[in-house]
Every structure is written in C-alpha cells, then in structure tokens.
Nucleic acid binder design. Structure first.
Length: 618
DNA sequence: CTGGGGATGGGGCCC
DNA sequence: CGGGCCCCATCCCCA
C-alpha cells in the first residue's frame, strides 16, 4: 500500500529528532504558521477578540491556546478577552501576537527599541515561556537587569496603574470576568478613555466578511493603509493595524461565570506582578496620532525581525495589497442604501485623493488611498469621500445621512477625520458651500466656522479648541451682556421648555437653533449637531458621529458586543435601556397606554407609532 | 395581501 | 462619558 517513507511521513512520530530529515517536511510548521498569520491578518476564521488597553486584536483560539496555557484557559469559554493592561500594553501585545504567529520578535513602534523588560513582563503574565526566555536572553546579553523591580518599566506603553495591582486583578483581567456586571476596573475604563492616546481608534472587526473592509477601515488611523501598510506588511505585524480598535466597546460585562485563574508566574519568571507596579511610567510612550500610525509603520517599514528563526519572507506579503479588491463593503446595516461615490471635485486640493473603490461607505475605501496628508493622517478619514465629499452636495448619500436629514446641514457635509481620531478636538472640517472654488493648498484641515485651513490636524485641533471657546465666550457674553434683548429672545423662543426655563435658568443659547442649555458643555455638545462635520468617525464603516458615546455605541454594534443580558431568556442587548425595555416582555408590564383607545404597550415607542395610526388620515 | 402590534436595532441628543 | 429617552426603521407574527 503505502511505501515506507510516505507511511512514515504520516506517522505520529514524524518530526521527532530521531527521524531522518526525509521523514518530515521541514517547512511544514513554518508554512502552517504563515497561513495562520495570513488568516489572522485578514481576520479569517478569527474566533477570539483580545482587548488590550484601547485596542482590539483578533486571533485564533487554537493558536493562542497552543501558545500559552493562560490563553488556553481564557479562550476556552470566551470569545472576548481583556488583558490586564498593567501587565501588557497594546503595543507589547501586538509584538507578542506577532511572535506567537511568526516565532519572531518584531520591533515595536516604541521609540525605544524592543523593550525586553516589558516584553518579559507581558510574556510572563501571558505564560509564554519561550518568549520570556528569549527576552531574558536578550536582557542578559544587553547586560540589563531584569529582576524584580526592573521588569516592566519603560515601553510598557502605560504607566503603572497605581499600586493596586494584584494577582487578583490579573486573574480577573479578562473581559467577561466580571460576574457582577461590573467591568474589570481597568480594562474598560482604559478603553473608554485611552490615556494620552485619545486619537487612537484602531479597528477591528468581528465578522469575517468585514475583514477586508476592516483592514481598509482600520488603517485610516494610520494613514498608510492605502500604501499597503496594513495589508501588505512585510513582517507579520500588519495585524496590528487592522486589529486595533481603540474603543471601549465592552461597556458592562456580560453575566458570565468567573474567569479561570489567571496566569501564575512561574518561579523562574523574573517578571513578577509587582514588577510592573514599580516600573517607571513609560511617559507617554504612545503619543496620540503617532501611535496609530506607528502600528502601520510597524508593518510597513519593519525593522529586522528580532529572531528566533531569523528573517523570512513575510507571509503578509501575500495579503491583498492596495489593489486588493475592496469588494464586500462592510455594511453595518443591511438596510442601508449603497453608499455612492461622489465625483471628485475638479480643482480641489483633494482631488488626487480620490480613492476609487466604488460605492463603499466612507472609510471603506481607504485601501485605495494612495495619499497622505501631513502627519500621516488621512485628510479625509472617510476614504475616497473625504474632501470630495465636503463640497457642495452630500458626498455620501447614505440612507442614514438622509434619514437624519432633519438636522439638515449637519448631514449634508462630511468631514474628514483622522481615521481613528476619536479626540474631541481631532476633527477637521470642511466648508460646505463654495468649496469647489476654494483652494487651501496644503492646508487640508479646514475649520468650518472661520474657513481657515491648517496643514495638520493638530493645528486645526488647537484652533478648534480656541474657536469653540471663543464662541462660547461670545455666547456667554451675549447671553448676559446683550441684556434684555437676549433674554427676551430666549424667553420667547423657549416655548417648549419654558417651564423648565422658568425653574432653571438656561443661559446658554444655541446660536443656530434657539435651543438653550443650562451649562456650556451641553451647549457645546448641542452645537456640534449643527456642524457640517462630525468629529467622531467609525473606523469600520466611516460613519461620522457628533458624540463619541454614540460612536462607541455604534462600534459595539459592529462587533456584536452586547453587554446587557436578560436574566430570563439570555437575550443580549447593546444598551441597558434596551434591556429594561425588553424585561417588560417577561413581566408583561405595559405601562404605556393609548389615551384614545386604551391600548396598552410595553414600549413607549410602540405607543407612539400606535398613536400615529390614530392621527394619520389614512 | 395588508395592516396592526410586538419586539428589536440604530442614531440623535439632552442630562 | 454614561444613562436615558426620543426618534426612525425594520422584522416578524397574526388576524
């Protein structure tokens, strides 16, 4: 039947040292890893999401489990893992993940070369003995001390989170480990509020189908996607870009059983938990904006791999490059109309940035971007739409945009965004009118209110900050100094909230729509709704939001994260309010009654729609 | 087939 | 920034 060698090839003992070289395929494991890494970078068959700090990584459970018993225990029951950010930063985890998939230690994007102390800490925490050993060797070779008290210092990507870190916290580090519905004390919060990296908005995707879109969408954050920085990385780290998702999408924790015990540090692991406690703060090792780009740089212009196996052809080179087909546009809602592409505006300074791929939502076409604006930030953040969209008519007549047209102007314009910029000030604006004829030269970041252009988002951000404050100041002055006139105006226009107004002064009045507010922050928030731009882009679909919270909520829907579970039926929801609503289904409570027919409803909105039936002529 | 109700998803926006 | 509520839209079921 089968000849000897062939039979041996499939012998379970194949691969043993005593087997002859012809008994095994030397490159088998390597090829396997290559394939797995390719799949990872594409999100293909990824079945687990790892949240670290403000980033989300995708991977394969099998691979993780095969690499670490800690991961093994984590992925056993959960698809979503949150790691202790005191022990591992997103940057470091990126390296680790690359290591797991490639066997190579790739340099991070940190200014300081690969920080083995940090890596060692993380490797110990994650129970990756080989990596830990490699780090130790490197440290020894470098003559550095890596004993307790030193490990986990700089490069951790984040300062030690006080001294409260304990083994227990590590044990409960993963996302679902919050039995009581509270999220792990650090993870979610950090994700919500990425310290010093507010601009990070890396992307991830929970669906395979969205993978391609994802890779395109993610990379706007770095501004290099179009160059293949993510998808065609040459060192296997490209996943960093497309697997990041700098948002707190976890919200509350699902009611899942307690996590299994966390990693226990092996005796020979010098990286003790306390080490990171004592480690010195990395001191803003992850600068905003730059960080997001750095991931791409990691993939795009890799340094030499650190070894284990030496440099090899990068599996990721096989990935879809800029020319990769952007088919399968991610549609986060099936009912959304096909996004349409707008013709590039002739003479526009952004014309060259036309991105090509047809009919995709903004942000989906980033792969086609071949250009960058200063600072490595995409000028548009919304793929080909970008600047083009800002001129004249709505560039992306997405249904939603149209639906939301009640706001009129706010939807008619699109803003670019630094892909991934979630920073409140990290928005840049485009004027809607007469934009075709306006040339801003290199000042691609334009403030709507004053039409000033800026060469970088940072400058625009700084400008916008003062801008709003100025306006606010003016408004406050107007509210108080214009005296009776302003007050009367308010009083008159406050028809609806007049009673409330009488009770509580609402001195902050919107200059556009007459609405008034009690505090300037709310007014500022409201005024954003009048902007032609929305500062918070979804990096997956490119949709823009006026409020970060709305955007993060939206992102949760992309990832299918539903933290709120019904105790009765197990159904899960993205919002607490939905759960509350849903619970009435079980309780039978129908608190909303139609005054016309006496019909009762569990939900107010259904009552409203019911009332509409009463009132509508048909 | 149609209309109404139940239930849910997503976005806007104020507090 | 999260909570809460409003709105619109949609799907499903059923009469």
């Amino acid at each position: 039947m089968v000849s000897g060698p062939l039979a041996l090839r499939w012998c379970p003992w194949a691969g043993r040292r005593d087997m002859g070289p012809d008994m095994e395929l030397p490159s088998h494991s390597k090829q396997l890893l290559l394939q797995l890494n390719q799949q990872r970078t594409k999100g293909f068959l990824c079945d687990v999401i790892i949240m670290v700090e403000n980033s989300v990584f995708r991977a394969h459970k099998n691979v993780l489990a095969a690499s670490s018993i800690y991961f093994k225990s984590l992925v056993l029951h959960d698809n979503l893992i949150s790691l202790d950010t005191d022990m591992v930063s997103s940057t470091v985890f990126q390296q680790i993940l690359d290591f797991i998939y490639t066997g190579k230690l790739l340099p991070s994007d940190q200014p300081a070369e690969p920080n083995f102390s940090t890596l060692l800490t993380a490797a110990s925490y994650l129970q990756l003995p080989e990596l830990a050993a490699l780090c130790r060797r490197k440290l020894k070779r470098a003559g550095k001390s890596f004993g307790p008290g030193r490990v986990g210092a700089a490069g951790m990507g984040r300062p030690p989170r006080s001294q409260r870190l304990s083994t227990a916290s590590v044990i409960q580090a993963r996302y679902p480990g919050l039995v009581d519905g509270r999220k792990t004390h650090h993870t979610s919060q950090e994700l919500t509020q990425p310290k010093g990296s507010d601009d990070e908005l890396f992307l991830g995707s929970s669906t395979q189908e969205s993978t391609h879109s994802l890779s395109r969408a993610v990379c706007p954050a770095s501004g290099e996607v179009g160059l293949g920085g993510c998808g065609s990385s040459t060192n296997g780290s490209s996943g960093g870009c497309e697997q990041e998702l700098g948002l707190d999408l976890s919200k509350k924790s699902p009611p899942l059983p307690p996590t299994t015990s966390g990693p226990h540090l092996t005796p020979d692991d010098p990286a003790q938990l306390s080490d990171s406690q004592h480690s010195s703060p990395p001191s803003a090792s992850v600068p905003p904006v730059a960080n997001s780009a750095s991931y791409t740089e990691l993939g795009g212009t890799p340094d030499e791999p650190m070894d284990l196996e030496g440099a090899e052809d990068n599996p990721l080179s096989l990935l879809e490059g800029p020319g990769g087909q952007p088919r399968k546009s991610l549609r986060h809602s099936a009912r959304k109309k096909e996004w349409s592409k707008k013709e590039p505006v002739s003479g526009s300074p952004f014309e060259r940035r036309e991105t090509g791929p047809k009919g995709a939502c903004p942000g989906e076409e980033v792969e086609g971007l071949g250009d960058r604006v200063p600072n490595g930030i995409l000028a548009t953040g919304v793929g080909g739409g970008g600047p083009n969209v800002a001129y004249g008519e709505p560039p992306y007549p997405c249904k939603e945009e149209e639906e939301n047209g009640k706001d009129g102007s706010e939807d008619s314009g699109q803003s670019g965004s630094e892909g991934g910029s979630g920073h409140a000030g990290a928005h840049y604006m485009y004027r809607q009118e007469g934009y075709e004829t306006v040339s801003y030269g290199d000042n691609l970041y334009v403030c709507i209110p004053c039409a000033k252009g800026f060469p970088s988002s940072e400058q625009l951000n700084a400008h916008v900050e003062t801008h709003t404050e100025e306006e606010l100041f003016i408004k406050e002055e107007g509210a108080y100094e214009t005296g009776s006139g302003g007050a009367e105006e308010e009083a008159e226009d406050l028809s609806a909230p007049s009673s409330a107004y009488a009770a509580e002064p609402r001195p902050f009045k919107c200059s556009v729509c007459e609405k008034t507010y009690k505090d300037p922050a709310t007014l500022r928030q409201h005024e954003k709704t009048h902007w032609l731009t929305r500062p918070f882009p979804c990096n997956i679909c490119g949709k823009m939001f006026t409020q970060r919270g709305t955007m993060t909520r939206h992102m949760r829907s992309h990832l299918g994260l539903k933290p709120f579970a019904c105790d009765e039926c197990g159904m899960r929801f993205t919002r607490q309010y939905r759960l509350t609503e849903h619970m009435r289904v079980h309780s039978g409570e129908k608190p909303y009654e139609c005054q016309l027919c006496g019909g009762k409803f569990t939900q107010q909105r259904n009552l409203i729609s019911h009332l509409r039936m009463h009132t509508s002529p048909s």
